[in-house]
Design a protein around this nucleic acid. Structure first.
Length: 763
DNA sequence: CAGTGAGCGAGCTTCCGCTTGACTT
């Protein structure tokens, strides 16, 4: 029987450490925080000096039971992470096991290697009560903000909403970015480019200044028709490009999004699998530090495979202001393994991590940049030609940026050049980019808001609450004017480009705007971008013993709670942004847009006064696509009251209607609904509707493996399944779904467990 | 999943940060 019990946070870590510790040690996991504030109420006794009530949540009961059983009569070693949360986990484990925090062995290691673990065990310390206090303050502060603020939103806006220190700032960032984009006025200018001839070789160049108007652009091209051109200066400059630091959670999410197109959540699920199978180090980290053995192994690998001159040992320093550095950077556990992972998605992510890690220990790439100045005989402006040649690839050998050489022909100062052609193309200044999941994570990290373990869940939460939507943006076609000088003549022409098209961008809903504006008005200090940073300073003061944690909370609460009281005076109508659009021509009734119980809505006629049952009820309609409460016009609003609209009949004589529902525009035949994408419910014709109905039927047939009437076997995203319209059943792997008989299918369905409720996304 | 927007009232919702499974149509 082992005499020692080591408790870490993660079961995968427990397995690894067990290998290094031998027979005398049993290693178990707490599965993260093993005690927490209760979910159902605030769990903080505010009047009693903010005394928190902690309990074991239902999903941790099993772990708690097993730890208690294993801790009897042995020496316990607390080996949770070395940061504020880890220290608190160690303390909670002590309380759970009835141990004395001041007398229990506390050990930490930043890298999981035999020597690091042996060193830690040789020199145990005790729990740092001040660091635990800092965590109490962090936990209780978040609880007070979340559980006092959210109910205000239930009363003033809609039930079930939420607000918090992290999520409300994330929403604010997205709302404000969207407003910047809406307010942006694109400015036009002209970019002049030219191609010169140097003894038969082409030299592309660009005019050093932009030209403001189309007249100026045309005039300029006309004015250089008979000019002469001469090389007046050649500057060659060596340049270097250095590799980036190894991955943290945030940079891994950004690069996996950019290079592999993975969502933040998908990246974390894949990384978790790689970690559990021992292929990579821990994936929730803010550190760019590599263990000594990892640096040595990378150095050896580089020397053996690419040669000495490709290697350069580098130690990176974190630039993140919130970093707590409890772990290493994310790296392969064995750099000699070029590939790892159970499927191609995992493999791609592993290879990205492998390449980034190796590149971080490689030499800089060397480039030679050439700038050539070309003077125009009768103008003061100059053309500039630039070239870049990669002289030594260095780290780009494994982590390339995919930039091609731009090679200029050999030129000498004073050399005359002949103009082959020139063009002036209209360009527009671009609005700031919408956030993607990954760029939002980057921004939050810069602001010090959120932690590696919460980036992905936070994005999920603000989507679940209906604050933001992930959207593919189609962009719009824009005609760009262009003047081309060729063979001594300037000709006007146009180029069509699509601007603003983008994939998977975060767009705020009207609900987000309402909630954000409300929070900004009544709780500006809480949704302030620096709120977390300031709070962190106070937590640090607690950890350093400069102030008691209850004192920090007291000061905060004396400021915060009056804001809650004050917000109770806010009127619902104010929050709901009622906006009058005009009068309906037929009846003269007022037409308004507002945020209703279920979202944005158009309304004709005033809401009757309370208790007035005689007054006519107002009529309601959804907002047209793309319009918002702030932008919708009377002209756009009026036709919406004609929905639902009869489109026509099918060949069988069934009526087809069109409408806009809570899930977008659709057409309806009998009981089936078909979502509309390009077609508009106000305009779609009978012929087109019939087409869509046929396509829909075809797609449904493709999904059907077998149809027994009441019972159907369908192909879903998780494989084939049996359904009777009410209950679903999986088909065992050893059965061929094509050959299943109705009786067999019925039996499987009857045996399947009853539908369980599984909520990830709320309505 | 494809409405709605009366009124009343009971019962419920909610945070951030640590960690995994079990589960889905």
């Amino acid at each position: 029987m082992p005499k020692n019990l080591v408790i870490v946070e993660s079961p995968a870590k427990a397995r690894t450490i067990a290998k290094y510790l031998g027979q005398d040690f049993k290693v178990m996991s707490s599965f993260g925080h093993i005690r927490d504030l209760p979910k159902k109420d605030i769990g903080v006794d505010i009047k009693n000096n903010f005394k928190p009530t902690y309990e074991v949540p239902p999903d941790k009961e099993k772990a708690a039971r097993e730890l208690k059983a294993a801790a009897k009569g042995v020496t316990v070693w607390l080996a949770s992470d070395e940061d504020r949360e880890g220290e608190a986990i160690a303390w909670h484990v002590c309380v759970l096991l009835g141990l004395e925090p001041a007398k229990t062995n506390r050990i930490v290691f930043h890298e999981i290697t035999k020597t690091a673990i042996a060193k830690a065990v040789a020199k145990p310390r005790n729990i740092d009560p001040k660091l635990v206090d800092a965590q109490h303050a962090r936990r209780v502060l978040d609880r007070l903000v979340g559980y006092e603020l959210s109910p205000v939103l239930w009363k003033k806006v809609r039930t079930g909403l939420s607000a918090g220190r992290v999520q409300s700032v994330a929403v604010r960032l997205i709302v404000e970015r969207e407003r910047e984009i809406k307010a942006f006025k694109a400015e036009s200018a002209y970019k002049v480019t030219a191609v010169f001839d140097a003894r038969g070789q082409a030299v592309p160049a660009e005019l050093s200044e932009k030209v403001a108007s189309d007249k100026a652009a045309e005039d300029f091209l006309n004015s250089i028709k008979s000019s002469s051109f001469r090389v007046t200066a050649i500057a060659k400059k060596p340049g270097t490009r250095s590799p980036n630091a190894p991955f943290t959670t945030s940079t891994l999410q950004q690069e996996a999004s950019r290079r592999l197109g993975y969502s933040v959540r998908r990246t974390m699920v894949l990384a978790q699998r790689l970690y559990e199978n021992g292929h990579i180090t821990y994936m929730r980290t803010d550190s760019v530090n590599l263990a000594g053995i990892a640096i040595d192994a990378a150095k050896k690998y580089i020397t053996d495979n690419y040669g000495d001159k490709y290697g350069q040992v580098r130690q990176y320093k974190t630039t993140s202001r919130s970093a707590q550095e409890a772990h290493e950077a994310i790296r392969p556990t064995n750099i000699k393994a070029l590939s790892a992972g159970a499927d191609s998605a995992q493999k791609k992510l592993y290879e990205l991590i492998w390449r980034r890690t190796l590149a971080s220990q490689m030499a800089a790439a060397l480039v030679e940049k050439t700038e050539v100045e070309i003077a125009i005989s009768d103008h003061s402006q100059k053309f500039m030609a630039s070239g870049e040649i990669l002289e030594f690839d260095g780290f780009l050998k494994v982590y390339g940026g995919g930039k091609d050489d731009r090679i200029l022909p050999d030129l000498v100062e004073g050399q005359a050049l002949k103009l082959k052609s020139a063009s002036a193309l209209q360009i527009f200044s671009r609005p700031p980019a919408r956030y993607s999941e990954a760029s939002l994570v980057k921004k939050l990290e810069e602001l010090g808001i959120g932690r590696p373990s919460t980036y992905a869940p936070t994005i999920g939460t603000i989507q679940d609450r209906g604050y933001i939507e992930k959207k593919d943006l189609e962009g719009e076609a824009r005609q760009l004017k262009e003047f081309i000088l060729e063979a001594g003549k300037v000709k006007p022409t146009t180029q069509e480009v699509v601007v603003g098209a983008d994939r998977a961008k975060l767009v705020p809903t009207e609900l987000a705007e309402i909630v954000n504006d409300f929070l900004l008005k009544y709780f500006s200090s809480i949704v302030d971008y620096d709120f977390t940073a300031k709070a962190e300073e106070e937590f640090d003061d607690i950890a350093e013993g400069k102030i008691k944690w209850q004192e920090v909370l007291k000061r905060f609460y004396e400021h915060f709670h009056p804001l809650i009281k004050k917000s109770e005076g806010a009127s619902r109508a104010e929050a709901m942004k009622l906006r009058q659009l005009g009068k309906e021509p037929k009846s003269g009734e007022p037409v308004a847009a507002r945020f209703g119980r279920y979202g944005p809505v158009l309304q004709i006629g005033a809401s009757p006064a309370k208790g007035d049952k005689e007054a006519p009820k107002p009529r309601f309609a959804p907002l047209p696509e793309g319009a918002t409460i702030e932008t919708v016009t009377l002209e756009q609003a009026l036709p919406m009251f004609d929905l639902p609209r009869v489109v026509g009949k099918t060949e069988d004589g069934e009526e087809i209607t069109a409408n806009i529902g809570p899930y977008g525009p659709y057409i309806k035949v009998g009981k089936s609904f078909i979502s509309l994408k390009e077609d508009k419910p106000l305009r779609i014709g009978e012929a087109r509707a019939r087409e869509l109905i046929k396509e829909h039927a075809k797609a449904a047939a493709k999904k059907t493996v077998a149809d027994f009437g009441k019972l159907k076997i369908l192909r879903g995203p998780y494989g084939p399944y049996i359904t009777d319209g009410k209950k679903n059943a999986k088909i065992p792997k050893d059965k061929d779904p094509e050959k299943l008989t109705e009786a067999e299918a019925q039996k499987l369905l009857d045996e399947a467990p009853a539908k369980t409720s599984f909520r990830r996304r709320q309505k």
